[in-house]
């Protein structure tokens, strides 16, 4: 088989997995949430979610009808034989997946309003990261619009202090209410610049539920914000309950002395992602 065809087939499988099988850590977090809820309406929301997740897996169909904008995060080994062909293979795989899974056509020209399927100008979006070695690691994150529309960024004053950042996140979650389909996962990007903070916020969504930032100070802040967000009692679907967020992930970069950007990327309960590593010899490891 040609390198291109092999890569395309792996990518079609990767996209299908991301759309139809919710990662184990997310399912476990939703099951724990169900046990934590005592309110009848909250329990019903989580039961409906878990029933739907099970059905999606059994029938090989997308978990949610909003199959998202497909965002690919690539760690490309400088010696990987796939570096020249990956981009074309991604586009082809997205087109095949759109027809075969099927995915909802979610790609619209901002000026003409024309829907072009799931490929269009710069979409699917690909984040390239060059790494040592010959492995090619591909992660796909289908991002739905309900939660994406709750993204936000604020440029803080460097003298503001961390407690103001905490309040910003908590108040934002309250303002969003049921719109992003809670229980959500919050990705928070701090520092760098406006664009860097936003990218870090989204990239942090790739972490497993419960995986803390290796920096103890940041890990403590993640836990504190998670506790405060869940004390709001916004609850599943914004209808009230103990679980508003499944987790909070923070990634950071050093900042300019005069600038303190904080970005929030909100992910719905359907925290879909799938990852594969393709080795130089064509070996495939599903992560």
């Amino acid at each position: 088989m040609q390198k291109e065809d092999f890569l395309r087939d792996v990518l079609v499988e990767l996209i299908k997995k991301s759309e139809t099988v919710l990662p184990d850590d997310v399912i476990t977090a939703l099951e724990k949430s169900f046990k934590k809820e005592t309110n009848e309406i909250a329990r019903l929301q989580l039961k409906t979610i878990l029933d739907n997740v099970k059905l999606a897996r059994e029938e090989g169909l997308p978990i949610c009808q909003d199959t998202g904008t497909l965002i690919f995060f690539i760690d490309m080994g400088v010696d990987s034989p796939y570096r020249h062909v990956l981009k074309a293979a991604i586009h082809e795989a997205v087109e095949i997946s759109t027809r075969e899974i099927p995915l909802r056509p979610n790609c619209v020209d901002p000026f003409t309003g024309k829907n072009t399927g799931n490929t269009g100008e710069r979409i699917p979006w690909i984040e390239w990261n060059l790494v040592e070695g010959s492995d090619c690691r591909i992660t796909v994150l289908p991002k739905g619009a309900g939660s994406e529309n709750c993204s936000t960024l604020r440029m803080f004053n460097p003298s503001d202090g961390i407690d103001k950042i905490e309040n910003f996140v908590v108040n934002h979650v309250i303002e969003c209410g049921g719109k992003p389909c809670p229980p959500v996962v919050l990705g928070i990007g701090i520092g760098g610049g406006a664009d860097i903070a936003m990218k870090l916020a989204k990239k942090s969504l790739l972490r497993r539920i419960g995986e803390r930032n290796p920096n103890k100070v940041v890990a403590d802040l993640e836990e504190k914000i998670l506790r405060r967000v869940n004390e709001t009692w916004i609850g599943p679907m914004g209808l009230g309950g103990n679980v508003t967020a499944l987790d909070v992930h923070i990634e950071y970069a050093s900042r300019h002395p005069a600038s303190f950007p904080v970005a929030i990327s909100v992910q719905c309960w359907a925290n879909r992602r799938a990852c594969v590593v393709i080795r130089e010899d064509g070996g495939v490891d599903w992560i």
């Binding site: 979610i49 029933d51 739907n52 978990i63 909003d66 049921g178 389909c181 679907m237 719905c268």
Partner: peptide, 13 residues
């Protein structure tokens, strides 16, 4: 009325 967001397969059923 609210229907659980994302529960698209149960709705289709």
């Amino acid at each position: 009325c609210s229907f659980t967001g994302g529960a698209s397969l149960l709705a289709a059923k």
